[in-house]
Computed example of a mutant assay.
Amino acid sequence: MTTLIKNQDVRTISGGILVSRTTNTLPASATGNIFVVSGGRILVRGLVGEVTTAVQNQACTLALGTAPTVGTGSTTALGTATSIIAAPIGTHMAANPGGATVVDLSTQAGVLISTAALFVVNAGNITITTSATNTGSVKWDLIYVPLDNGAQVVAA
């Protein structure tokens, strides 16, 4: 395995490039960007979030999506919104195209990422949308493979 450090948050790992986004508060009843894709398309091998500050005990759902900045593409959901009410520290969540966003509220096991969860993202943003203004903070990790020469990802 080769290690490549770029801006202290990107490194090559077996099967793709890992980009980490430091913990950040949840967007307040809005959509926020968690990663920015530039230079072409990427194949996402995994997109995982971990709660670092507990989410308050108030109704709230979380959804992941993409918002391309090239072509005629429109915003696309990476699964349906899932409840994150009172998600404790250590809760994991992952993209699940075609299904509900995977959220493991038990914190006793990791989140399941299957090979069916592979998806292509055009240049643009990978987003998070919440349905309410809740306290809580999540850090994100993305594993990807560039499909086009020059394609890369940075944390938003």
Rank of each mutant, 00 (worst) to 15 (best):
M1P: 13
T2Q: 13
T3N: 14
I5L: 15
I5D: 09
K6N: 11
K6T: 15
K6P: 05
Q8T: 14
D9W: 13
V10I: 15
V10G: 02
R11K: 14
T12N: 11
I13D: 12
G16W: 02
L18K: 10
L18R: 12
L18V: 07
V19N: 06
V19D: 01
S20P: 01
R21D: 06
T22E: 12
T23A: 12
T23P: 00
T23W: 00
T23G: 14
N24D: 13
P27V: 11
P27Y: 08
A28R: 03
S29N: 11
G32P: 01
V37Y: 07
S38P: 02
S38H: 06
G39C: 08
G39S: 01
R41W: 07
R41A: 12
R45T: 12
V48M: 04
E50N: 12
E50Y: 12
V51Q: 00
T52W: 10
A54R: 03
A54D: 07
Q56E: 15
N57S: 15
A59T: 15
L62K: 07
A63P: 08
L64N: 04
G65K: 06
G65L: 05
P68Q: 06
V70R: 07
T72S: 13
A77Y: 08
G79N: 00
T80C: 05
I84W: 02
I85L: 15
I85K: 09
A86Q: 05
A86N: 13
A87Y: 04
P88C: 08
G90L: 02
T91M: 01
T91W: 05
A94I: 03
A94V: 00
A95K: 04
N96R: 11
A100K: 09
V102A: 13
V103I: 12
V103G: 05
S106R: 07
A109Q: 13
G110K: 09
V111W: 08
V111I: 13
I113C: 09
A116R: 13
A117E: 14
A117P: 04
A117W: 10
L118S: 08
N122R: 08
N122K: 11
G124K: 05
N125Y: 15
T127N: 03
T127M: 01
I128W: 04
I128E: 12
T129K: 02
T129F: 01
T129R: 00
T129N: 02
T129M: 00
A132H: 06
T133L: 06
G136K: 02
G136E: 01
S137C: 07
I143W: 02
Y144A: 03
Y144M: 05
V145I: 11
P146M: 09
L147V: 09
L147H: 07
L147Y: 08
D148T: 07
N149K: 10
G150H: 04
A151P: 09
Q152W: 08
V154A: 14
A155Q: 05
A156E: 03
